[in-house]
Simulated assay, not measured.
Amino acid sequence: MRIPEMALQIQTVLVLGGSGFVGRHLVARLAAAGARVIVPTRRFERAKHLISLPRVEVVEADPNRDADLRRLMAGQRLDAVVNLVGRLHSDTGAPYGRAFARAHVELPRRVVAACAAHGVPRYLHMSALGAAAGAPSMYLRSKADGELAAAANPAVAATIFRPSVVFGPEDHFLNLFARLQRYLPLLPLAGAGSRYQPVYVGDVAQAFVNALARPRSRHQVYELGGPRVYTLRELAALAGDYAGHPRPIIALPAALGRLQARLLECLPGEPLMSRDNLDSMRTDNVVDAAAQARTAAELDIVPVALEAQARHYLGAAPPGFDDFRSRAGR
């Protein structure tokens, strides 16, 4: 995939969530295209993997604080702000919990207001496929309200992206299924029949880069998906096969799957699955064919097949590979 010339159009970009899974790919591609990229992080350690990239500045700041947000934008002459911040879990609430409200709705509202105040003309926003006010999950309802916040100020041209589940090295989706099958004799799976259209992380990052280079992407919404639709069961099976540990997959009935999710919510740390995640699965995570064609045409994206990438990063390293990496200093 070619990287468009951006030097005359986009000089400086602030990327919120730039140290995360999608963010690190986007920051690298923006830097390669000649942009100066500013990445705020609450803890420098989380983003130190970016400091070796040319034209990338890692700044300790918390975008959830108005003072930090003003400091990030003041005097920078930003051409665009990209917001990749999101979370999969929250406390409960109506129409969604406080954690979802803060990350998915309040943050974009504050960022767009700050963009307008400091003369930043572009705002690129990460939403999710299936976002809707009447969606079955808190996650998707909060994402829908986040889109309204993103497009609320006509002085700031927003571009909204709705990806299906994103896969790639270090993802928390296929890698999770691969790890589980490494240690479990079988895989009990809730929502096994739910449908997804996984999109490669590199394609998502390139869509953002190409949108910045194309003025016609202003005030547009783009859905992002890969070339093929899978059931969750098929994706779990592929992950096990590619990791070299295929296991029997047991599709759980709805009631049993919900009980499993509730038990997982009680474990310490981020749950592997929540009841709200199950609610999201009630909506197929699939891109409309017309929307897929429009994204390809307007953003010049040819989706990479899951099979072309996942078998490489999920597969076991050949003998001696880890030793070779350590000797090479990688």
Rank of each mutant, 00 (worst) to 15 (best):
R77C: 06
A254P: 08
L140S: 13
P318G: 06
I250M: 02
G320E: 10
A133W: 00
Y230R: 01
V27C: 08
G18V: 10
E57Q: 01
A32T: 12
E307S: 13
R87M: 14
N175Y: 00
V286S: 11
D79M: 00
L16G: 11
N285G: 12
A308P: 03
L107A: 10
V82N: 11
L78D: 06
D203A: 10
Y230C: 05
R65G: 01
D145E: 15
Y196A: 10
P271C: 08
S194E: 08
F167Y: 14
R29F: 05
A94Q: 15
E147N: 13
L88R: 07
A158M: 10
A74Q: 15
R24E: 14
Y123E: 04
V304Q: 15
R98D: 14
P4I: 09
A236H: 04
P188L: 09
P303A: 02
L180Y: 06
N175H: 11
G86H: 10
A239C: 06
R70L: 10
D279G: 04
V287R: 08
N153F: 04
A31S: 15
D323I: 06
F208V: 09
R218S: 15
P40H: 02
A205K: 12
G75Q: 13
S19P: 01
R65A: 01
R109H: 13
R195W: 05
R102C: 05
N64T: 13
A317N: 02
L69V: 08
A291G: 07
G244Q: 05
G320T: 09
H219L: 11
A178M: 09
F208N: 07
G93W: 12
C266G: 14
G240P: 07
E234T: 05
R102M: 10
E5D: 15
L26N: 01
V221D: 11
K48Q: 04
L187S: 06
S274I: 03
A308M: 02
G193K: 09
A290R: 14
D276S: 08
A132E: 02
P95H: 14
Y230P: 00
F100S: 13
R36V: 11
